[in-house]
Design a binder for these strands. Sequence first.
DNA 1: TATTGTTATACTCTATAACTATA
DNA 2: TATAGTTATAGAGTATAACAATA
Lengths: 161, 161
Amino acid sequence: MNYTRWPIVVRMTAFLLAQLGAHAADRFAERIAPLDLAPRHVGLLRWIAAHPGASQREIAAAFGVQPSRVVVLVDELERRDLVQRHQDPGDRRSRSVRLTERGERMLAEVGRVFLAHQADLLAALTEEESAVLGELLGKVAAARGLTDGVHPGHAAADSGA
Amino acid sequence: MNYTRWPIVVRMTAFLLAQLGAHAADRFAERIAPLDLAPRHVGLLRWIAAHPGASQREIAAAFGVQPSRVVVLVDELERRDLVQRHQDPGDRRSRSVRLTERGERMLAEVGRVFLAHQADLLAALTEEESAVLGELLGKVAAARGLTDGVHPGHAAADSGA
DNA sequence: TATTGTTATACTCTATAACTATA
DNA sequence: TATAGTTATAGAGTATAACAATA
């Protein structure tokens, strides 16, 4: 079952990581799909909750994406009444974004879903092993500059505040 | 730097996993891009090497994708002269696929690139920590049915042989 | 003239359906 | 008629470029 012809002498940890990461992301996506959300929405929702009233430009900068991408994402969240755009009285070009009541409740619900997801995902590990795994992953992530951010592809690292 | 309002009391290991997995996949993709390959090609190349002469139908079944998808992927590899299609004399509808000389050499090169990639990725860990990480990930992957396979999205698990 | 947000357009990857040739 | 492979078509997601309103 182990199709070789590959330096499989060493453990293919980097591959396992990519494989399991994709698996985790897929399973999480399945769990939030009934909430009418995709993973990319969760990252944005979390960030907006932590930076209430940020402008779309600021969001784009924080996530390292084009402003036009933010328009689409905020559109999707606003259509679901999870965030709301407000005119900035100081600069009428700018639109500040913040969570609605419904957005707050949704974020809480997503948090519960995430915990269930994580419990399932790591069910094979003991409490202690889970802690060790978390620590090792945290170490690697920090060394690679992925501190508190969001997925590459979906976003970039937290740029402060 | 840790934007909360989330049950961050527990470590978000599942998130770290998805984040790091995407990061690992992206970095690997960058490394093989100069070889004119994408990650999806590597999984296929490896599988074909381990199952020489398999038909496209068998490939599709092993990877859990539509036959039309296999056509495209094998086209891409054949255009690079890494694999070759052959008429099955027994059933002239069927096309058996196998690596070319060039494909063999490419696979070896990809293996070297992978090892360099992995070394970089896990540079923050000691030898022993790397081993522990590999073991824990292997445990989780096995429990989740991701034995020796390839990425979800790109493919499915090895179906034997 | 520069900047914020928006809209329009195109490109990549993938999935589905229709088609050809064998069996 | 069923099956292996192929081609055609359409969809999701993202990136780039052109644009309108405001500064």
